[in-house]
Design a protein around this nucleic acid. Structure first.
Length: 117
DNA sequence: AGTTTGACAGTAT
DNA sequence: GATACTGCCAAAC
């Protein structure tokens, strides 16, 4: 399976359950490149709006809404998450421990995994 | 064609 | 424990 990195990022992102969040690192790890978290950010940045990706559910390892600035208005991202029931420990920080979702734990994403034998 | 930059993360100091 | 440095890979300059 040799799809573009970005495409795989979109697929994983689209798979984030409602009311849950995940991190750049976890997405990267799920794709087989634990050290390419930056690429996830790069991919999301250039992600077409047509895909309707729930990118607001992607936060950094601290649970901080690092991408809030890319949502038109910074608070838009936080509002969306609150509406999904996600609680915040700070104005820009979600309760990651309580709502984090690890793509690698979801069996339905097996096809995306890139485990090197 | 070399350099810089990114919605980051892990390790080292 | 907080800061600094490095890795990652593609795109824009």
């Amino acid at each position: 399976m040799s799809e573009d990195f970005a495409s795989r990022v979109y697929q994983v992102t689209a798979s984030i359950p409602y009311g849950r969040v995940t991190t750049f690192g976890r997405i990267a790890r799920a794709l087989g490149s634990p050290r390419s978290a930056r690429m996830v950010g790069w991919a999301l940045n250039r992600s077409p709006r047509e895909l309707n990706l729930p990118a607001h559910r992607v936060v950094n390892r601290n649970g901080v809404l690092s991408g809030a600035l890319h949502f038109g208005h910074p608070d838009a991202m936080a509002d969306l998450l609150r509406e999904e029931g996600v609680t915040f420990v700070d104005e820009i920080t979600v309760d990651l421990d309580a709502f984090v979702w690890d793509p690698a734990e979801d069996p339905s994403l097996d096809e995306l995994f890139v485990f090197p034998d």
